[in-house]
Simulated scan of single mutants.
Amino acid sequence: MHVVEILRKLVGFPSVVGTSNDAIVGWIDAHLRAFGVEAHILPGPEGDRANLFATIGPSDRPGYILSGHMDVVPAHEAGWRTDPFELRAEDERLYGRGTSDMKGFLAAVLAAVPALTARPLARPVHLAFSYDEEAGCRGVPHLLARLPDLCAPPLGAVIGEPSGMRAILAHKGKAAARINVKGRSGHSSRPDLGRNAVHAMADVLNAAIATAENLAEGPFDDAFEPPYSSLQAGTIVGGQAVNIIPDLCTLEVEARAISSIDPISLLAPLREAAEALRARGFAVEWEILSAYPALSLPPTAALAGLLRELTGKAPLAAVSYGTEAGLYQRAGVDAIICGPGDIARAHKPDEFILASELAACQAMVEALAARCRA
């Protein structure tokens, strides 16, 4: 099946983050079985979604992982000219939700399966397709926990996020948290009888603002834009009406950390400010929504050299967005980012990928197969 037709099938599955992915997993499994490749379907704790892992070649020898996520962000935003879950072709452009992020990579890998299975591989190529990456990389940790049972320690993992088919060596880490502050409601004419949760949350919000300002003063890593860690309050919700003392306020924040810093540690001043509200009679709930570490692969790493050879392009030092690559690295697997498409096209109406980008990615995977026969 041609890569564009595979992409058409994948885009047709509305595998939105946080929902069941049984349909897309089943189709990929059937596609692989048609070429004699047995996939391991690895259900997650949610019960309605799963990771998929398959090996082409000898699983008891070190090889390479091609890693991508099957989920996409929702497509409710205005501006789509046609159904986002039906692939639309206009000259070189192929439109649809997930075309760049990152079903284009999955399609290119699956289109290369005939080449991967044509002749025996001396080193294996593994396909690792995850779920709920768009919710903070929630699915892949369960896959990584099973990795020692599935294959020999890999030589490296290529995470196919959209990078214009140029390898990327590093990205920032991220942690996101939700803070709930609960007070006591009442009539606004008697503020002395209530506890205003919105007012109390101001302490946490001020801590977030002060932390963000402090982070902008360093430490620095010039590989990133901006070259420092960052923090922001993303949403705040509270209150019912102007004449009711609000008894609940919810704040969601995220931190993005340069390679040398644990992103969760950046949230510590906010948690301290939130916990201090207990002494004033407020109930406080603190929840980490998602977290993943930064990626930092040395430019001298063998995996970096391999991607330079496969793509014909020198790797880029870093990007500021995050991927599953940091989790692979933390699990002891060298990881690098390289995939078709452009991150600037993702998460917006009329997302698209170029047919030439799909072809380039398929060629890279087939070149990897040739290397693994040597």
Rank of each mutant, 00 (worst) to 15 (best):
G12R: 02
S15F: 02
V25P: 05
G36M: 07
A39R: 03
R49P: 08
F53D: 08
T55G: 03
D60S: 14
G63V: 08
G63Y: 06
M70F: 01
H76W: 11
E77C: 01
E77S: 07
R81V: 13
D83F: 08
P84V: 08
M102D: 05
K103T: 05
F105I: 01
V125C: 11
D132R: 13
E134M: 04
E134R: 04
G136L: 09
C137M: 15
D149R: 14
P153M: 14
E161A: 13
E161P: 13
R178W: 02
V181P: 13
P191N: 10
A200Y: 03
L205M: 15
I209H: 07
L215V: 11
G218M: 01
D221A: 05
A223Y: 00
P226L: 00
L231M: 08
A233S: 11
G234P: 00
G239K: 09
N243F: 11
D247G: 15
I261S: 06
V284F: 04
S290W: 01
L297E: 10
P298Q: 09
P298G: 12
L303F: 12
L307N: 08
P315M: 04
Y321D: 07
E324R: 07
P340T: 02
R345T: 10
A346Q: 06
L354V: 00
A359D: 12
M364E: 03
V365S: 07
A367E: 12
